[in-house]
């Protein structure tokens, strides 16, 4: 398969790594305000982006500590009751992950994202259970609806820049799609600019699945339990090399 732009159907596993790395981290308010600049990095998002469209109307990305999964909690380390946070609501940047300190800087209230990994670590804004909200497509229907493209079932190595703007994800298991059917296996890398990537999503499946991980951030480093996931979804015109 030649390098180029393809319509790509991604599995729930890919939805997970994309929402965590290209939305969850850049929506951490301390990161947006530069506090993590010398550590985990900065963000392609700015305070002015709140309320603006940064993805297609099919994209809603939620971080919800109240889901009884690996990243579960009901109250954060600052005593604030947890609730679902709609980071992107139907394509619009809706909410950043914040603790009390950073929420106050922008005239808002904390949305209970302050977590500390251990007793000797400071609470800082973190993700919990982050996912792409399900749509109304059957996953098989998305593949049948794709005339020429690629289906990516699982990934291997990946990396993303410090601002979480440009990511590269290696295909471990992938297949060519021709006339709505899976054909020969394909290897390669997905290259994605975060906003353009989420803006190109035009179909989202029903098959939500969450994966566990340990999310690292801070200095001293803090690893906290999280989940990330989503359903099968399709993005149009994605660079595959």
């Amino acid at each position: 398969m030649k390098p180029g732009l393809y319509d790509v159907v991604f599995s729930p596993e890919l939805a997970g790594i994309f929402v965590h790395e290209s939305v969850g981290h850049p929506f951490e308010l301390d990161r947006i305000m530069g506090r993590e600049g010398a550590e985990a990095g900065e963000s392609y998002m700015s305070l002015e982006d709140l309320g603006k469209r940064i993805a297609s109307e099919h994209v809603t990305i939620i971080d919800d500590p109240t889901i009884e999964a690996y990243g579960f909690y009901l109250v954060d380390e600052e005593g604030v009751p947890a609730r679902p946070r709609r980071l992107i609501d139907r394509g619009v940047a809706s909410e950043f992950l914040s603790n009390r300190e950073y929420a106050a800087y922008v005239g808002r209230l904390s949305n209970a994202a302050a977590r500390a990994s251990e007793f000797d670590k400071e609470p800082i804004p973190r993700m919990s259970n982050t996912y792409l909200a399900p749509g109304d497509w059957d996953p098989e229907e998305i593949i049948r609806d794709t005339r020429r493209g690629i289906y990516v079932a699982s990934y291997t190595e990946w990396n993303i820049d410090d601002r979480r703007e440009y990511g590269r994800y290696g295909i471990l298991e992938g297949y060519v799609i021709e006339d709505g059917e899976l054909k020969e296996p394909v290897l390669g890398f997905i290259e994605a600019e975060s906003r353009a990537f989420w803006s190109s999503v035009d179909a989202v499946g029903k098959d939500l699945k969450l994966y566990i991980g340990t999310c690292g951030k801070g200095n001293p480093s803090q690893g906290v339990p999280v989940t990330f996931g989503g359903p099968t979804f399709r993005a149009r015109g994605i660079r595959v090399v």
Partner: peptide, 14 residues
Amino acid sequence: PIQFGEEKMARLKY
């Protein structure tokens, strides 16, 4: 100076 907002605080055991 750092000032926190007036978030509702939890009193809860779970």
